[in-house]
Write a protein that binds this DNA or RNA. Structure first.
Length: 420
RNA sequence: GUGGGCGUAGCUCAGCUGGUAGAGCACCCGGUUGUGGUCCGGGAUGUCGCGGGUUCGAGCCCCGUCGCUCACCCCA
């Protein structure tokens, strides 16, 4: 056992499997770019207040899961537990909402929550998120959802499910909350559950215990309290989802852990992930901008869990067997072969062809083994024969088939370039 | 923060009612003075998580401790 270990509960990715992580993240980012979202790169730490005011003091995320510390200037700093609040801080600070709307942004990177780790739940984890700020068109709601859906499909995922609901506007929520609190007061509950309900009565909809589920089956649902405006918005969202063939389940009992959500709210679950099955979620946030000191502008976005989506892809075996395959592996078997090969890979790389060389004087057999392990598409042996004749063979590793070539870089480039 | 399971080779694990540690995979070398994967032969590798206790003797039993893991709460 080595002396040092990574801090508890962090996810780490290293070869040979880190390319799978990269593959998943790239597909999520590609889907965002495909829909016109642009990168926003932000610090992983913020003024603690960005989160206490943005995410909400009463949430678990803020009240017990944040990595908060004092910096050397005595400021309270927090490692970001989620992405949206920081994005809104930057939007306000840099007046990004003063130009043409909507502002469409994507981000990726590590996030931090000080929870007890378990399968699919890490203290440092990775998200890809997008935010569309400026309008509250139902089309934008559906666009955001479809970006996630497109990415999941591109990754070959099938066993995931979209849950949606509407958390409506403040007035609808207040009306519902009053009735819900009244309803809960009539139930026989244990101390801890009563405390939970005080914090947020909606939480009880999420309880996993059967007796609570049964009791809550007759509870008043927010969806029955929607104002006509919220209702027609939600109806339109559902219609648009159907129009672009995105399947969804209306889940009026869905609960989200962040306070800022209003209106359309959604979650993606994966069937094969065990207890932590959420692979992404998001929703609209009407009050967030103003609570952080900005203009009254509506926005919607999502956060996708890269770690969990990778787990889902592995569970469904949806990833390609070779990722980031290099084109050529050069095996030198003499000193002069090594010298020629070394120059060769430099020139090929300049031409944009990925290649590598067998280092370490391991001889032909060792070099071929290295070629095999590298996963390269082709290998090329260079010894004295090749150098004197100027001819060589490109061996297709998968089949053993051999292509004759000259050692001239231009010939190799054209043969390797065409073989993609 | 609460509860369960588990810590033995780089990895996955076996190790009988306590008797001084093993397998498979991976790695290295060779069989094949110039072609990898399969096959065959050979080789290296461990303070059995750590500390204490019981015992003639502990990988195994007891206590403590650290770590990992799964689940609860909650979330990506």
């Amino acid at each position: 056992m080595s002396k040092f270990q990574a801090p508890k509960g962090v996810s780490e990715y290293f070869p040979p499997n880190s390319d799978q992580f990269e593959y998943v993240r790239d597909h999520l980012l590609t889907a965002a770019k495909l829909a016109g979202y642009s990168l926003i790169e932000l610090p992983v730490f913020e003024d603690t207040e960005v989160f206490t005011r943005g995410v909400g003091e009463s949430t678990d995320v803020v009240s017990k899961e944040m990595y908060t510390f004092e910096d050397r200037g005595g400021r309270s700093i927090t490692l970001r537990p989620e992405g949206t609040a920081g994005v809104m801080r930057a939007v306000i600070e840099h007046n990004l909402d003063r130009g043409q709307l909507p502002v469409k942004l994507f981000y990726t990177g590590p996030f931090f929550r000080a929870e007890r780790p378990q399968a699919g739940r890490y203290r440092q984890f990775y998200q890809v998120g997008i935010e569309a700020i400026g309008y509250n068109d139902p089309e934008i709601d559906v666009e955001v959802i479809s970006v996630a859906d497109t990415a999941f499909k591109a990754l070959g995922l099938k066993q995931y499910k979209l849950n949606i609901t509407s958390l409506a506007d403040a007035k609808s929520r207040d009306n519902h909350r009053k009735d819900l609190v009244k309803f809960i007061a009539g139930l026989k509950l244990d101390e801890a559950t009563i405390e939970r309900a005080k914090l947020n009565p909606l939480r009880l909809f999420d309880d996993k215990r059967d007796e609570i589920k049964n009791a809550m089956s007759k509870a008043p649902l927010l969806l029955d309290y929607l104002s006509s405006e919220s209702k027609s918005h939600f109806e339109e969202v559902k219609r648009l989802l159907s129009e672009i063939n995105i399947e969804y389940t209306i889940n009026p009992r869905m609960v989200r852990g962040l306070d800022y959500y209003t209106g359309t709210t959604f979650e993606f679950d994966h069937a094969l992930l065990g207890a932590q099955s959420g692979i992404g979620g998001g929703g609209r946030y009407d009050g967030l901008m103003t609570s952080l000191g900005g203009a009254e502008v509506s926005g919607i976005g999502f956060g996708l869990g890269v770690d969990r989506i990778l787990m889902a892809c592995l569970a469904e075996e949806s990833l390609p067997s070779t990722i980031n395959q290099i084109q050529l592996f050069v095996v030198p078997i003499t000193d002069s072969g090594k010298s020629v090969g070394f120059k060769l890979i430099s020139q090929l790389r300049d031409a944009g062809i990925s290649c590598d060389l067998a280092y370490g004087d391991r001889g032909l057999k060792g070099g071929m083994k290295a070629a095999d392990k590298s996963g390269a598409r082709y290998c090329l042996v260079i010894g004295d024969d090749e150098i004197s004749s100027g001819k060589c063979e490109l061996k297709l590793m998968s089949s053993g088939e051999v292509i004759s070539s000259s050692l001239a870089v231009s010939d190799l480039i054209s043969r390797l370039g065409n073989s993609k």
